[in-house]
Design a protein around this nucleic acid. Structure first.
Length: 227
DNA sequence: GCGACAG
DNA sequence: ATCTTGTCGC
């Protein structure tokens, strides 16, 4: 087991009110720092659910930026024990995601989550949560906005605009491909915003979503259809 | 009170 | 997220 979890930090059998309190508490432990370079191994994370809403299926794809290839991939399922509540996504998905991360044989340089990190009502989206609990650098790359507003972007790949919420910079709206909808990038843990943006850009080009997250999503879909 | 609301 | 085929366009 390459990644181990601090025991005190994971309590999933809680209700929404307690979950919010936990987020407020843990948010203060997030570290913003420059990403150690060079970044080569990016672990893309995603989760899906069985149609009966009983299981959460999570996947991790370890993407090698150097070789442009997936070097590891794992799937884990956990029973769903929390409803979908905007802002509390990690209490629904993180148990399965952490189980999948636990299967990695190689330690990733950074985790890439399908959802927000700092761009969250309490500045503690799923990317922060998973990063903090694993102790690994992490970032959030979401397909839509949870909180915040932004200006118009140019159409070229690489164009960006600050994502602002309550007068605070919470992330970056980033175009990963010419003429396609942008993604919403924010820090998770042990990273800074420029570093997060750079990783997302280096992981994308052919598609809107960066390769690690995109492949993790495909892996989840296949795993679910095989059920 | 009303609208918004990651996946 | 999930329910779902073809189709327009680079």
């Amino acid at each position: 087991m390459i990644v181990r979890l601090p025991r005190l930090l994971h309590r999933w059998n809680v209700g929404p009110a307690r979950a919010i309190a936990i987020q407020r508490d843990l948010a203060s432990r997030v570290i913003i720092s420059k990403l150690p370079s060079p970044v080569r191994l990016v672990a893309g994370l995603d989760a899906t659910f069985t149609r009966d809403e009983k299981w959460c299926i999570a996947s991790v794809v370890l993407w090698d930026l150097q070789d442009q290839a997936a070097v590891e991939q794992h799937v884990q399922r956990r029973r769903l024990a929390f409803p979908y509540v905007p802002g509390l996504l990690s209490f629904r998905e993180a148990p399965a995601l952490l189980a999948a991360i636990g299967k990695l044989r190689v330690r990733p340089d950074v985790l890439m989550c399908d959802g927000q990190g700092f761009a969250h009502p309490r500045r503690f989206g799923i990317a922060c949560h998973v990063g903090l609990l694993t102790g690994l650098p992490s970032l959030g790359c979401a397909k839509s906005i949870l909180v915040g507003e932004h200006g118009v972007l140019r159409t070229a790949r690489g164009s960006k605009s600050p994502l602002m919420d309550r007068g605070e910079r919470v992330g970056t709206v980033l175009r990963t491909r010419d003429g396609v909808n942008p993604v919403y990038v924010s820090i998770g843990h042990r990273i800074d915003l420029p570093g997060a943006e750079e990783v997302v850009l280096r992981c994308s080009g052919r598609f809107r979503l960066p390769d690690p997250t995109r492949l993790a999503h495909q892996l989840c879909s296949k795993a679910r259809s095989t059920t």
